[in-house]
Design a protein around this nucleic acid. Structure first.
Lengths: 144, 144
DNA sequence: TAATTATAAATGCAATTGCATTGACATTCA
DNA sequence: TGAATGTCAATGCAATTGCATTTATAATTA
């Protein structure tokens, strides 16, 4: 219930701005290269990592912090684009399993050629290696 | 053009997640209290701070990092809600000056009673005071 | 096991956002 | 000056998002 002190407010403000700036620069780089957005990348990467038996949409929602309907519609678009396959689930009649397609694997790789350097520019070039690790630790503390 | 190393990617990922989590928790608190969003707060605060001769929409866009049409429509809604006034500009026939209304001042104050404690919970309670200051400095480095 | 409750995913509709363009002035400079 | 260019702000239209609800199936429990 207590009010934040000045340094807390400052940190909050800088978190918002740093995120907005970094995020916008990365999204802009992808858009300039006519590629899908970061949300698509996240889905593709998750699917690629656990390709074996597929991933359930509700797991992906939880992992990527999207609302249920948001994930449902994101998958609509990605399926239409040919990057994911939805297969109805054998052991749960309500659900489905998701798989990445070859085209999905390919576009994720292509995206990384833009995404990686954009991250480097937004983060890697701005801080020393020790500070980068320290920043990660502090941000991690916000996640607990 | 170069690829980021592992620690840079980790920091990027944590920046996204920390922002998403903190932002969502604060927005949720405001919504639970039936109050406007953070974007409204930002506009109200800017207007309150420079109440003297008003603020131009294009200045506000730049400050708040919103697209031009986004600001135009945000102001539509805030004007309809009675929180801001748009006055056509005497010295520039293309534009207008923005002013906060008494109702706007009031709602901003009310919002802070929710917003402040929500920031405290999301940031202030998670790190020691020295770390909070250090985090601000590192995030500031990302803004340069 | 039948009824109740919970979970997975989709969807209708309204609100918001993004994109491209327009309208109205200002500024520049030939 | 006045034609060309630049800037401020609004807007039509399509895409996306948010909310509430629905449909379908699972899990629980009386």
């Amino acid at each position: 219930m207590s009010s934040p002190d000045q340094s807390t407010v400052t940190t909050w403000a800088k978190l918002l701005r740093a995120h907005t700036k970094a995020f916008a620069s990365v999204e802009a780089a992808l858009k300039a290269a006519q590629m899908p957005t970061l949300a698509w990348y996240d889905v593709l990467l998750e699917l690629e990592r656990s390709d074996k038996d597929g991933v359930r949409p509700f797991e992906l929602q939880a992992e990527l912090l999207l609302p249920q309907y948001g994930m449902s519609r994101l998958l609509d678009r990605m399926e239409r684009a040919g990057y994911v396959r939805r297969v109805s689930c054998s052991d749960d009649g309500r659900g489905q399993s998701l798989f990445i397609t070859p085209a999905g694997i390919e576009i994720r790789k292509k995206m990384w050629t833009i995404y990686g350097p954009a991250i480097q520019k937004a983060i890697g070039d701005k801080l020393s290696p020790p500070d980068i690790r320290k920043l990660a630790d502090m941000l991690a503390a916000l996640l607990e």
